[in-house]
Design a protein around this nucleic acid. Structure first.
Lengths: 202, 202
DNA sequence: AACATGATCTTGACACTGTCAAGATTTGGA
DNA sequence: TCCAAATCTTGACAGTGTCAAGATCATGTT
């Protein structure tokens, strides 16, 4: 890792990293191309050698976020290999935790900050893979009799939407008042999942 | 409605209206204070006589959006006075339609564009009222045996989150691929609601 | 080994943004 | 009538994304 070369060596990744850091410290409004460049130690126009515009940097950061979410979902699922119901519950909880621990990255991924996602293949791919990971757990739950036997993709959307909506409303401050005083967010998530799941001996 | 006075007369509302129009035509990125001022026919700094900063204008626009959502929810519910199950279904559908017909207003209301919502009493009030409207339908459903008899606020969060999550993912382009080819958005919403509702003779 | 080419980075500029400061105009009440 | 407050304008500033042009470096071909 040389120190002061004219060519940075790995500027592209350095910019993504700087972007993630700014995002977590200053939020979305603090994320500017120029600040990212400065933090990476290059001039304000250096990023344009690696990203055609700001949207592309945001796409790269979002993609990185999806990779992390994908991994954490995988860990939560792998922790309960023989218990699909628990996989669904802890997978959902991992999703919620990711959203709470990486609020602004989560918002960039899901709150319309990134336009024309379809133009970024890496983003599309990892987001599809993540969805399929949800579908897999749903299928496992169906086989275990924990979820009804409709088309798993539809059920996956219903379940994913459920969790996504609750945590989104929470992050937006829309839930706090009447409810969060008595029930914390984990209870609400598990309760919501139970509403969808079939009565079972577990 | 005088034409060319130094004092506009009702600039505050004119600015809100201009903001809504720009929002629907150019999206969030096109919404600037200066453009709003120009569309209202005043100088670029006139808005500061009515709003301390851009956030306040956004809060006003969001509040207006909530009022509209509140009204449309009310209409959908009132259309089926004796059928709570249908009220829930059509209320949810009204919510989804509002989101699809006013995409960017919806995003401003719910996607973290507005910070520190608690500082805007009118916004807090109408958003609470909207939530209570959901709670009312949930209670009616409970009385009709269509929903389980947990605390209605918790159930309301679960149901609201469900619908909110599905339409949010949809607006973000996250649902289209595998699912939306076969099922349209209304089917998915109704299916998701059915998952939550108890089996009933209806 | 010299060199040309393309990748990478810098400097400079532009229009646009939100916001502050200071001044002009109008309105309403004393 | 006249003053004070509300309303609106003009001017300025730093920060933004992006374009254009030039500087520097790395690399492969001869």
């Amino acid at each position: 890792m040389p120190s002061k070369k004219y060519h940075h060596g790995d500027l592209k990744n350095a910019l993504i990293k700087a972007g993630v850091e700014i995002l977590s410290k200053e939020g979305i409004d603090g994320l500017s191309l120029r600040k990212v460049a400065q933090r990476a130690g290059v001039s304000h126009n250096a990023p344009y050698s690696h990203f055609p515009d700001k949207q592309s940097l945001i796409a790269a950061i979002s993609t990185e976020g999806f990779k992390q979410l994908y991994d954490e979902l995988g860990l939560a699922i792998a922790a309960f290999p023989r218990d699909p119901k628990r996989q669904l519950q802890e997978g959902a909880w991992a999703y919620v935790q990711f959203a709470m621990n990486n609020t602004d990255t989560f918002k960039i991924m899901f709150s319309g900050v990134l336009k024309k996602e379809k133009e970024y293949p890496a983003f599309v791919e990892i987001s599809h893979k993540t969805f399929e990971r949800v579908v897999d757990v749903v299928k496992a739950c169906q086989n275990a009799g924990v979820l009804s036997s409709t088309r798993p993709e539809i059920l996956a959307v219903a379940v994913w939407g459920q969790i996504h909506g609750i945590i989104s409303l929470r992050l937006e401050g829309q839930i706090s008042h009447t409810v969060l005083d008595d029930f914390d967010i984990r209870e609400i998530v598990l309760f919501a999942l139970n509403q969808v799941m079939l009565a079972s001996p577990g």
